[in-house]
Design a protein around this nucleic acid. Structure first.
Length: 283
DNA sequence: CGGATGACCTGTCGGC
DNA sequence: TGCCGACAGGTCATCC
């Protein structure tokens, strides 16, 4: 699920219930996800007040009063669930964890935040809030696509002379951080660029055109998450999953959405990952 | 160095 | 119904 828009939707869903709350108890049900959890994670989270939630690329950062931040990455299958009371005292309420409920945060409000991740490609870590941009998972990230440091001149420069397919280049988090397989497919369709085009051979004008398209696709997806999920939360408390009408992703064999086009959406595999595109509209 | 591939995990789906 | 392979929204380590 989680590319930048989904992670942002999860952050927006968690923020109102977590900010200002105290983590009364943290259940850590296994020693690791993709990597081992940090030393004494449960203890370091316990009795910490949550100051705020931020996002960097696909990472959620939970700033704690004691000077550390909890880093959360959802991997491929990570989900956050909100459950329990919205008000009232903390009751030491401990339902039996569901399968793959790896970490449960019990807030002093009675609300529980559960991190569930079947494939365990997700991650959690604790790091100093100050200087966290130097953390090994974040230090090499490229600019935020919705931020001021991502612009036409930057992208043209970064793609210059690159021999890799544009699909791979846009998935490279060091160039621009936050795009994943779905939104790269959608961006390239909207830009009319074939995913196998060598990045360095695309005219600067067309590369420049990618910048506003990337921004628009991500902003529309974030907006769709907000509207389709109401307060970012589904009835079962799960955050961040919403069906957004994709124009090419997972539409192999379906007709192109362009009314002037009679072609079918095609799937190819590039560096082990599916790319969906219209062979007529994308050159 | 750049670029491609394998690896990490579990779940789901379609075909036989 | 069961079994098997293909595939899944990420990204790091390794190989050429």
């Amino acid at each position: 699920m989680p590319e930048l828009p989904e992670v942002e939707t999860v952050r927006r869903g968690l923020a109102p219930v977590m900010e200002g709350a105290v983590i009364a108890q943290a259940d850590v049900n296994r020693p690791d996800l993709r990597w081992p959890f940090p030393e004494n994670m449960a203890g370091r989270l316990t009795n910490q007040k949550v100051l705020g939630l931020r996002r960097r690329s696909k990472y959620i950062l939970v700033d704690l009063e004691g000077g550390e931040s909890l880093l959360i990455h959802l991997g491929m299958s990570g989900r956050m669930l909100i459950s329990g009371h919205k008000t009232g005292d903390y009751h030491h309420d401990h339902p039996v964890p569901a399968k793959h409920d790896h970490v449960v945060l019990h807030l002093d409000s009675g609300v529980r935040i559960t991190f569930n991740d079947a494939r365990r490609f997700g991650a959690m870590d604790l790091l100093p809030t100050v200087g966290q941009e130097d953390h090994w998972l974040m230090r090499d990230l490229g600019p935020e696509p919705l931020g001021n440091n991502f612009d036409e001149a930057y992208l043209v420069e970064r793609l210059k002379n690159r021999n890799t397919p544009i699909k791979s280049a846009l998935l490279d988090q060091r160039i621009v951080s936050g795009l994943g397989n779905i939104y790269v497919c959608e961006v390239l369709f909207r830009a009319g660029i074939h995913p196998a085009c060598k990045a360095g051979q695309i005219a600067a004008k067309r590369v420049s055109g990618l910048v506003p398209i990337i921004r628009a696709v991500l902003e529309e997806a974030i907006a769709a998450g907000g509207s389709s999920l109401k307060d970012y939360r589904q009835a079962d408390g799960e955050l961040g999953y919403f069906q957004h009408g994709f124009q090419v992703y997972d539409r192999e064999g379906d007709p192109c959405v362009n009314p002037d086009c009679t072609a079918q959406i095609t799937r190819i595999v590039q560096s082990g990952r599916s790319s969906f595109f219209c062979p007529q509209c994308q050159r």
